[in-house]
Every structure is written in C-alpha cells, then in structure tokens.
C-alpha cells in the first residue's frame, strides 16, 4: 500500500533542515526578545539615568532573585501542575532557619544542607498532596499560610541578624562588575535547561506536562514527576533565601513579600503555557529580566507602588493573551 516516498529510511542524525530549525529561536523567544528590546529602547529614550552600565547591573541584580525562584516554579508549571503560591513563604522559612543557624554559630555548610533538606521535605509534601489529586493552587495556598505562621513562631516575629558570615560572598562578591547572585541566576537557568533537555527525569517531566494521561498510559510515573517538580521549586526558593541572607546578614518573615507574584509574572511573560508542557527556563529567565527592567523604569519615573502594580498586572495580562493567541493560531484551534 505504501508508496516509495512514504517509506522512511532510519535517520543517521538530524538533517540539515532539522538542525537549522533547532538553532532558530522559537516564535515565542523572538517575540519575547523583541518585547524586551522595545522596553529597553523606550526606557532609554524617555528615562534619565536608565541607559548606563550601573543601572543595567542594578536591573540584573534585581532580576536574579526573582529569576532563580521563577525558574524553580517553571518546573511546576511545565509539569502541568499550574503553579505554586507558597514561594515567598518557603523562601522566608528557609531564610529564617538559615539565619538562626548562622546566628548560633553553625558551620555554614551544615546549615545549607539543613536548608536543602527542609526545601526537599516541603516540596515532597506539597507535591505529594497534589499528586493525590488535590488542586495545586489550593494546596500551596494552604501550605503558604501554614508556613508563614510557622515562620513567625520560629522567629518569634522579629528579624534575625547573623553578623558577618562565611557565605557573605554569595550575596556581595563581584566578578567583572556583576555580583554573585547574577552568576547564580545564569547558572540555574543553564542547569535547568540542561536538566529538561537531557535528564531522564527532565524529559519525563515535559511529557507529563504535555499530556498527563498519555504519560501515565506510557508507563511514566506522574506522581513521582509531580513531587520532583515541587521539590525543584522549593529548592529554588531555598537558594534565593540563601543569597538574600548572605547579602543582607539578616532574615525576617516578610522579607520576600511580592516574590510569588513577581516569579509568576516572569513565567507568564516568558510565555509558558499555564496548563503545562510549553515553556522553558531560558524564556522564564528573560521574563524575569523583563519584569525587573519594567520595575526599574517605573521606579526611575517615580511611579507610586499602586501604579507599579497596575502596570505590571496589565503587562502580564497582555503577554498571556498574546502568547495564547499565537499558540491558538499555530495549533489551528
């Protein structure tokens, strides 16, 4: 029945066309970079004190913290588990615990291990409940409230200072003019991209996010993948907490206020599909830079807090709508 043209020859490697296609940035990435370029251009023209290296470094520095957490959250979104609303609370409890341990004179390495352990437990518990079929938004909303309360109890409601610590360099050291958090941010983005493209668990995560039922029918463990996604998200929060404590030598319960929304905004501006399977750490990272640039622009223009929130919200809405329309056109639905 099959005509000669429809008989495939086992491919030795990717064809030239396929290679080109892989190198060519996706439509979403092109749009994203275009949006960022436009924002920088408009800011540079209209804003005094915007287009200089010092301000650029400030932008990247503020993008770093959001970006690290947002890349962590990207795993939950890509795996088809929507999002986590307990990011700032997870970071806060990690920060407070770390500061207390450092304050009490623990070895920094040991304290960091404990924080990592706490993050893993928080991820497994939240991911586990979600894997049982609970709605991730409700679960993390509840977990966030519980963690916020717990953090208050642990810290006694006051800020905790550590004094100079051996991890201070993580927050303040500069290499080639950029501070350490910027490099951590870049490293996290690269590692996350490699993990998703190359690790078995990363590939399983993308498949589960693309079609949960098909992944289960193919014999992949959806619940294990869900737990892994939440663990990676919590680890991202712990990393952000570590950098913050290292930099400011103190921690308190409300240190990360607004982080959840900023991370979410970065993911959405990055064009990830909230239903899963579509998006990338690189795009989330650029989304974080976009949000940071926008924030910088608005601060330089002395926008009020309320106005800044309004503009950021509108930008997220526009981005989400635009990406949705692109996807609908591409899939023809």
């Amino acid at each position: 029945m099959s005509t000669p043209s429809s008989v495939a020859v086992p491919a030795e490697g990717p064809s030239a066309g396929a290679l080109l296609r892989r190198l060519r940035p996706t439509t979403e990435m092109t749009i994203l970079l275009g949006m960022l370029a436009l924002l920088i251009l408009v800011s540079a023209i209209t804003t005094e004190g915007f287009f200089n290296s010092e301000n650029a470094r400030a932008i990247v520095r503020s993008a770093a913290l959001t970006g690290i957490v947002a890349i962590g959250l990207t795993f939950v979104t890509l795996s088809g588990n929507l999002l986590s609303l307990s990011l700032e609370q997870t970071a806060a409890i990690c920060g407070v615990l770390l500061a207390m341990m450092l304050h009490d004179g623990w070895a920094a390495g040991l304290a960091l291990l404990v924080i990592l352990g706490v993050a893993i437990v928080l991820g497994v518990v939240q991911g586990g409940v979600v894997a049982l079929g609970a709605n991730p938004i409700i679960v993390t909303l509840g977990a966030g409230a519980a963690l916020a309360g717990l953090t208050g109890v642990i810290s006694g409601g006051t800020g905790i200072t550590t004094g100079p610590t051996s991890i201070g360099w993580l927050g303040t050291a500069k290499v080639f003019g950029f501070t350490m958090p910027t490099y951590v941010f870049i490293a996290v983005a690269v590692l996350a991209a490699i993990f998703l493209a190359r690790a078995r668990a990363g590939r399983a995560l993308m498949l589960v996010g693309s079609n949960r039922d098909a992944a289960a029918a193919s014999g992949l463990s959806v619940s294990r993948t869900t737990m892994l996604a939440f663990v990676l998200t919590a680890v991202g929060c712990a990393l952000a907490a570590t950098i913050t404590v290292a930099q400011f030598q103190r921690a308190d319960t409300i240190q990360f206020e607004g982080l959840t929304f900023d991370a979410l905004a970065a993911i959405l501006v990055g064009g990830a599909a909230i239903g899963g399977g579509e998006g990338s750490p690189a795009r989330t990272a650029i989304g974080a830079v976009f949000i940071a640039t926008l924030g910088d622009f608005m601060v330089l223009h002395n926008y009020s807090f309320g106005l800044r929130m309004t503009v950021q919200g509108v930008v997220v809405l526009v981005a989400v709508t635009a990406f949705h329309l692109i996807r609908r056109r591409r899939t023809g639905r």
Binding site: P14, A199, R203, S210, A214, A215, G277
Partner: peptide
C-alpha cells in the same frame, strides 16, 4: 486523550514508552 502527545515531536512520541532505552544512566542520548 492518552495515545499521543500532540504538542511534542513525532520522535518524542515514538520514544516515550521507551524513555529508559533512550536515556542510558539517566541521561538522554540524542
């Protein structure tokens, strides 16, 4: 519903049930 991953490539679909085979030692082999 559960037979294919519509938004993934044909190659990704064909190797999905054999993910272990194409990820020796846990790492993907293109």
């Amino acid at each position: 519903r559960d037979g294919i991953f519509e938004l993934r490539s044909v190659a990704d679909n064909l190797t999905a049930p054999s993910l272990r085979r194409v990820t020796p030692l846990g790492w993907f082999s293109p």
